[in-house]
Structure formats: structure tokens, C-alpha cells
Amino acid sequence: MTDMAQQSEAISDLAPQEGSVVLSARGLSKTYGAGEAEVRALIDVDLDFESGELIVLLGRSGSGKSTLMNILGGLDSPTSGQVWFQGEDLTGVEEHAVTQYRRDHVSFVFQFYNLIASLTAAENVALVTEIARDPMRPQDALEMVGLGARADHFPAELSGGEQQRVAIARAIAKRPELLLCDEPTGALDSKTGVLVLQAIQRINRELGSTTVLITHNQSIAGMADRVFTMADGRLVDVVRNTQPVDPGAIAW
């Protein structure tokens, strides 16, 4: 990381930017519990994600990065603050509108693959393509993650890395504007993890989806266009990589 060209930048505290910005947040806070049991998971976060960016959201366990991702992805709502997706305010809208947002624009990849055990790899992907507006063919999505030959296998017949790549194929099959990956390599060994990261990077490049990769693993930050660092619920640093590295060069 030391030889990497980096450049810190200030976070804009202005209104959401027009143009290439896909997702913006202003003053996001999330508090759990009340009184003495109160936990402030997210404190006053502002951010802007640009179209086609690959962002690594870095932080230790408990820094608030997953909470942030859940709110950005429409899985959770903030205690205060606002989120805009392509200029549309996402906060305070009805449940079905959030479902529609997830259905049409966002995709998730989790640490635990969360595949449907009773569906084959291709069917797991098709699950999404059936409800998406502009999906790719399930087979193509699997090809993109290098699993074209394993399409007919059930999750139980796949290795952990393969299952995670099916999860990625499922996530990208609807060509999402926003791909949120929460510790996608957390359950994998280094070698398998690299394959997954390569798949994510390839998708980011080829589909142009804004990709957010959450990790506590500093080495992964090297592949990002920008690295957001969180600590104690706050966004403490944003660094732009002028020369992102190939995941193949990363090891941990």
C-alpha cells in the first residue's frame, strides 16, 4: 500500500451533486437502543458515490460500515439524515418503494453466500433475472464469474469460492447500478478470495456498476478507485487511488 499513489479529498457538505453521482448521503446517523443502552452506530455521515466507481469501505469490526451499507442498500433506515439515489430521496418512503429500489437498482453480496439451497446455480441467478427490468442471461452472468460450466449444480455441490461467485453472478445479473458487497471474501481463503475479487473488479469494469466493497482487510483497499475509512461510526478518511492494482497482486 505504501507505494500506492494516494490522494485525500475533502467530503463535500453541499447538497447532492448532479451528473456522475449515483448515490449521496447527508447527515446519516443511526442509533440503536435508548438511554444508557444507546449505541450510536453511525454518526453524521456524508458521502457521494460516482457512477462506475469501485469503492472500498474500510473499517474495523464495529466501525459502522455494515450499518452504512444496510442503509444505502435499503435494508435499514437511518435515525436521521437523507439518502438520494439518482436524485431520488430514499428516506421515509413506503416499504414497497424500498422493495422496488432493491429490485431494480441494487444488488448485494454477503459474507455468507445466502444461496437458495433448493435451486441450481443457474436457477439462483434466474431468480433475479425473472424480476429484473433489464437482466442479462443467467448463463452470461455465470460466465462472467467463470462458472459457466457449473450452471446445473446445486449449492451443496459447489466449493465456498464457487458459491460466492454464484452469489456475485446472481447479484450482477440484473445489471445493478449499485453493487454492495459485505465482506465477500470473509469466509474464504486468500487464493479463493482473489478469484472472487477479480470477478467483482471485472464486473465493475464491464458493467459499470458502482461497486462498494466492505472489508476490514486493508490489503484489499489497493484495488479501489476510492477508499472510505470508517471508525467509531464516523467517516474519517476518503482516499483516491490514482492507480488501482489488480486483485491478483493482493495477498493476505
Binding site: T99, F108, N114, V128, I131
Partner: peptide, 14 residues
Amino acid sequence: SRELATLRVLGFTR
């Protein structure tokens, strides 16, 4: 519940 939650996250309605 895990699968059903996954489907909800994928954008399936209740």
C-alpha cells in the same frame, strides 16, 4: 428464514 430474507433482499415482495 435465511432464504426468505435473501429473497427479500433480492427485491422479492412480502
